[in-house]
């Protein structure tokens, strides 16, 4: 596992934690509202969840890239023949 994959995992984990924390505050501090600073923590969590998996699982595997390229080149050859 590369460093950036690990960083992505950490970001995702923190993102989930922040979102749950921000959401939970709605029931403890300000009834049924995610309020001000807690809202910012919730948003930060959402952003980390958006970006984290991109580092972690965001790349399409090399074998998929190779397969699609091969298919594309094959199709290109067919077009040329016609």
């Amino acid at each position: 596992m590369k460093v950036k994959n690990f960083a992505g995992m950490i970001m995702t984990f923190l993102g989930i934690t922040f979102m749950i924390y921000g959401f939970a505050t709605a029931f403890f501090y300000h009834p049924y509202k995610i309020y001000e600073d807690n809202a910012i923590i919730f948003i930060l969590g959402s952003y980390l969840i958006i970006a984290g998996p991109g580092f972690w699982i965001g790349e399409v595997p090399k074998e998929v890239v190779a397969r699609v390229r091969k298919e594309a080149l094959g199709a290109k050859e067919e077009v040329k023949k016609e």
Binding site: E59, V60, V65, V68, A72, A75, K76, E78
Partner: peptide
Amino acid sequence: EKRLTPAHKNFDGI
């Protein structure tokens, strides 16, 4: 339909 689009020609997974 037979023409290849850039998505196929320049596939980079991103």
